[in-house]
Design a protein around this nucleic acid. Structure first.
Length: 274
DNA sequence: TGCTTATCGTGATGCCCAGG
DNA sequence: CCTGGGCATCACGATAAGCA
């Protein structure tokens, strides 16, 4: 005789396989999920009611406020439970309500951005258009001065994009210094600005080497916080001219060169600070 | 026991980069 | 030139624990 391994779910009132229950719950998994979601919405709605009552938002802001509440809650939890990558990140707020209130009251631009982005998301339901709470400085904490609204896509882009600087050399002279927020942006703009072929922009950063792009341009690419490996093999000559000059402040002119010297040394790689 | 809340894990997104 | 793994970001889902 086989025992029927079922349990009664007190929510959907059905007998369901035991495996479909969590250890301590009297709800089956699917009911539990729904109950969880409803609980979250209830909490959010309580907070929103309070804000409406205080006149901080209107009832029309409900949809935006709901998503802001859950984002605030999510960020607080990430810091609280030290999720991977958040071990050292702090959050200035303890409750989602305090968090979102400060955003709405103290950061009106962010709140407006949030509402606009929410409307955009609600019309298309594309995940990458969802608004998220971004840390402006990704190494920093969740503080009033370090947060902004960013769409999910933009946040992902920021997460992996590498800010970099390019020194452009033409005719053996420094032609331009350009900053980019990512390598992708760097490639696109170099192609447009200098008219160089696309495969020439497939360069490596932080090599400490001058790379020829064609069209008469050469570049040095360096990323933010990038470390250039030291090379013993001499590749470039660094030439430093030193002069001691007697100078007339009144006439604003050089009077005479007292001493002049030049030092030259070899280096394997070139780097600069950003 | 029925339901809610706290805690922890997984998934979506899109860039970078190595390697064929 | 293409592809797939790795990574950093955040939202969402699953499970354990708590409370009346």
């Amino acid at each position: 005789m086989e025992k029927i391994k079922t349990r009664f779910c007190s929510r959907c009132k059905k007998n369901i396989g035991k495996g479909e229950f969590y250890k301590t719950s009297s709800y089956c998994r699917s009911c539990h999920k729904i109950s969880n979601q409803m609980g979250k919405v209830k909490r959010a709605m309580r907070a929103i009611d309070e804000l409406v009552e205080k006149g901080i938002i209107t009832i029309n802001d409900t949809v935006s406020a709901l998503s802001l509440y859950s984002s605030c809650e999510s960020r607080i939890n990430a810091c609280l439970y030290k999720k991977e990558g958040y071990e050292t990140v702090r959050c200035d707020w303890d409750t989602p309500l305090e968090f979102m209130t400060d955003i709405i009251v103290e950061l009106p631009t962010m709140w407006t951005d949030w509402q606009v982005q929410t409307t955009l998301y609600e019309t298309n339901k594309i995940k990458s258009e969802k608004p998220t709470i971004d840390r402006i400085d990704s190494f920093g904490d969740y503080t009033l001065s370090n947060i902004q609204m960013l769409s999910f896509a933009d946040n992902s882009i920021k997460a992996k994009s590498k800010p970099c600087v390019v020194l452009v050399i033409k005719d053996l002279r420094l032609y331009d210094t350009i900053e980019f927020c990512s390598l992708k942006e760097m490639r696109e703009k170099l192609i447009r600005k200098l008219g160089i072929p696309i495969n020439a922009t497939n360069v490596k950063v932080d090599t400490g080497l001058i790379q020829n792009l064609g069209n008469g341009y050469s570049c040095i690419f360096q990323s933010k916080n990038g470390v250039v490996p030291k090379s013993i093999e001499p590749r470039y000559k660094v030439v430093i001219d030193k002069k001691t000059i007697k100078y007339n402040i009144e006439t604003n002119e050089d009077v005479e060169i007292i001493e002049q010297s030049q030092s030259v040394f070899n280096v394997g790689s070139l780097s600069f600070s950003i």
